[in-house]
Design a protein around this nucleic acid. Structure first.
Lengths: 113, 113
DNA sequence: CAAATATACATAAGTTTCTTATGTATACAA
DNA sequence: TTGTATACATAAGAAACTTATGTATATTTG
């Protein structure tokens, strides 16, 4: 059973950047499959969400692209730019920090007056 | 320095429900201030986000409301309904699960082929 | 005591970011 | 040959915010 989609909102860019940081280069479909496998089908990235995100990362200069042909079929590989590497560190540490804060907040039992 | 707002998206309802679960009853402004204090200004809930969320929780039957007057000023207290208590447990455990999954995903070094 | 700030509610327009739907095309398996 | 998988893309619509605005009372501060 996968997560209610609003949870994934806001984390997609970070997920994509981190995967690219760990795998040198990846193409869109590969990203969807990797996330699906690694999260045991809990996080399913739709193409309608992923491709615009990748295009936006490219427009922001965070990734570069390379076209590759597998037979007649096209593949578009994405790779982090230097700025992309910096941005990835920022986003990942921000998310880690946020998760710590949330963990703390959700464990609070009583309001401190 | 507070979090980029897209991170908070999708977690607001869960935060509000959990606070109500821990504090019996709370009013809107109190929720914003409590979150601000507990997170050391890292999570700032805007009124434009909070009030529609509270109204939506009420419309869904997850909370009940009571008006209270402090002098001439009105306060609207929110309290979990029985369904609200159930929903809170679901949302909190879903978020905890999601955070574990994200933590795992963001630590992966190499793609497992 | 006037002005600024804090308390306390609310809504509405606009933006972002997703979902859902659709489209195109190749490759492979049944 | 039919369905499924691979692989890209975009567009309409929905959800959930931000930002701006509005109203009103209470308190602090210069």
């Amino acid at each position: 059973m996968n997560y209610s989609s609003e949870l994934i909102k806001g984390t997609l860019k970070t997920i994509v950047l981190k995967l690219l940081a760990d795998n040198k280069k990846m193409y869109g479909y590969e990203i969807t499959q990797t996330v699906k496998e690694q999260t045991l089908d809990k996080i399913l990235i739709t193409e309608g969400a992923l491709y615009p995100t990748l295009h936006s990362l490219e427009a922001d200069g965070l990734v570069t692209t390379e076209i590759e042909f597998i037979g007649k079929r096209v593949r578009k590989y994405y790779r982090l730019s230097p700025q992309g590497k910096i941005k990835t560190k920022e986003k990942v540490s921000e998310l880690a920090d946020f998760m710590n804060t949330m963990k703390f907040l959700l464990n609070i039992k009583t309001k401190t007056v």
